[in-house]
Design a protein around this nucleic acid. Structure first.
Lengths: 334, 334
DNA sequence: GGTTATAATGTAACCGGTTACATGTTGGTT
DNA sequence: AACCAACATGTAACCGGTTACATTATAACC
């Protein structure tokens, strides 16, 4: 692969001149520019990004860590982030954190070795404190996606999960439900806690009592949703509606209800959370809370570019979820 | 950020010695090694991957181009490829080709500038000829995923699409269908042509006549599936089963059939292709052809590593699809 | 003691760009 | 003719690693 010196020889100019042509510096006469471009084409010259990054101490690349490369959630986010970054002529390197502390740290290490200009992190296993330390230590912008660390508020892009839980519950209350079960995500996760808080807020605001027996802590898996219904049954809990903290669990719950001979929504209404693709295809269609996933990616990238000084303006950092009403909810029939 | 020279000063040794410690070279005494490791820790030293890559002319990184970062198909593939690559201590940079020629070339350009050690390409818009030229020009392994270019057979990981079309059609024939419509993908794409060829082979092998009026060329979109049924109706085509070249179109077709008052599978059986996640959630569950997506990613990575000499053994390069039977197909009722 | 093999460490050129600074050229002013 | 501004181009140091080769220290053998 041709180097800048080969090009300079071939075009009978100095390396500095070639560099100027490549970088669009204006101090080059038209005739020289032509000569150089010609030489570049003839030799198939492509600048070596390593040499460039080494010399400039800039990689023009942002790094992104996601929990998992598969899954609709991350796909949309990555796409939006990449689009945004590319429009600025920069690039995005995406790595997977595999939802484990070591692996997430590994991924960050890798990106730092590549000297990325900024980090977009969607990490779940690294505690707040380590993140705070990291922001101190590394001198590049670090954006946290779908996470809220008070000390790093300026670097967080997060969803108002409390509001989401509130919306879902309020929708059921509006329809006349008064006994609403809640299948929660693992409560060590902040988003599950916030969704639960929103649920509770709606319940109490409606003048109802918050009943712990109607709340089950589960695991965000479909199977967990199924088991949660069974656990509710064993508790002999009485309810006409279920709010699950994600769509997987909602689908699991619907299966369990069906197995019990209950009809959705006639006997029990169900609301999910996330609006995954499949929510459109279940029968009945799942009423759920939409997360603006693509927005997350776009805005995280924008925020990073902003901090790098490559973009002007400001960035919204907290998003409002929206309720998507389908067929899995209706007025209680009894 | 500390450099190797700072570390060498701090530990009172030469840069060569530090480099030896970092790279696990054995010509270092234990006491010196200790000293150096200590210095590295104290300064928080992280090797600059650019400098390293520049000096060694190796990046220990593979590049991957996918059509779209979102979508379950690519997600699984990326994950499998990344896992495989990481196990070899290397890394993967993924970029999106956005299904356009310019964009795909762009992505490749970017990866070449990063001097990746090999390319894993899932591209659709770059013609065979350009790919062949590329393989000549670049001196690194280039693996083509889900594509079959005869001249580059050794670098292709592909699915036997002909077999997939055959399997789907044969399944319907086995159940007794004799009038099977086919909603094809855009025929400028090789995979659609192969699936159609498989369909035709099964039909003719069964002693039936290949009837062009039962074949519609569509666009791989859900809406296209819907329209295809309408077009078949306008042609007054008579059929008891439909084979769609992907699940999106199959779902669109089912909707159109339902709108026509026809029941699936009692009046018309439907088979899709791809086994996307949603195929499990449609009603009735969609019979479809499974693509071993994760295998694609894994094997593409393995093949590249093999060619780089970092792995031994051989790699299967053509995969057999499998039929997944669900509830959308049954014996014809008339 | 001299010779030699082996281990441990250092020196400096090199990878391929960028860029501060030096130098050369041209045309216009006074 | 002398001077200067503006433009065009070249030279060489530098970014932070790797590594061939040189050098020195240590032990072993005759």
């Amino acid at each position: 692969m041709a180097t800048i010196r080969q090009v300079s020889k071939h075009a009978n100019v100095s390396v500095a001149t070639v560099s100027r042509v490549v970088n669009g510096n204006k101090w080059v006469s038209d005739s020289t520019r032509e000569k150089v471009l010609q030489a570049m084409k003839e030799l198939g010259y492509k600048p070596n990004s390593f040499a460039k990054a080494l010399a400039t101490n800039r990689s023009d690349t942002l790094g992104m860590v996601v929990s998992d490369l598969a899954g609709p959630f991350f796909g949309e986010m990555m796409r939006a982030a990449e689009d945004t970054v590319r429009k600025q002529g920069k690039h995005l390197i995406i790595t997977s954190g595999h939802e484990s502390f070591d692996s997430e740290m590994d991924a960050i290490e890798f990106l730092m070795q590549r000297r990325v200009d900024a980090l977009l992190l969607h990490v779940e296993s690294i505690p707040d404190n380590d993140l705070i330390k990291m922001c101190d230590e590394y001198s590049i912008p670090i954006i946290l996606i779908n996470r809220r660390v008070p000390e790093l508020a300026d670097n967080c892009i997060s969803l108002d999960n409390d509001m989401g839980g509130y919306l879902a519950t309020q929708h059921l209350l509006d329809q006349g439900h008064t006994a609403i079960a809640c299948i929660a995500g693992p409560l060590f996760k902040a988003d599950a806690r916030a969704r639960l808080a929103g649920y509770r807020r709606a319940i109490e605001q409606a003048g109802l009592r918050y009943d712990e027996r109607l709340v089950i802590e589960s695991d965000y898996q479909e199977e967990g949703g199924t088991q949660s219904i069974e656990r509710l049954n064993r508790r002999k809990a009485d309810f006409t509606a279920v709010f699950a903290h994600n769509d997987h669990m909602a689908i699991g719950a619907m299966k369990a209800l069906k197995a019990d001979g209950k009809r959705v929504p006639d006997d029990v209404s169900v609301v999910g959370y996330d609006d995954m693709v499949m929510a459109r295809y279940t029968v009945p269609g799942l009423t759920t809370v939409n997360i603006p996933v693509a927005e997350f990616g776009r805005q995280a990238a924008d925020l990073a570019l902003l901090k790098l000084g490559d973009r002007e303006g400001s960035v919204t950092q907290k998003y409002q979820p929206e309720l998507v009403v389908r067929q899995s909810t209706t007025r209680p029939k009894r």
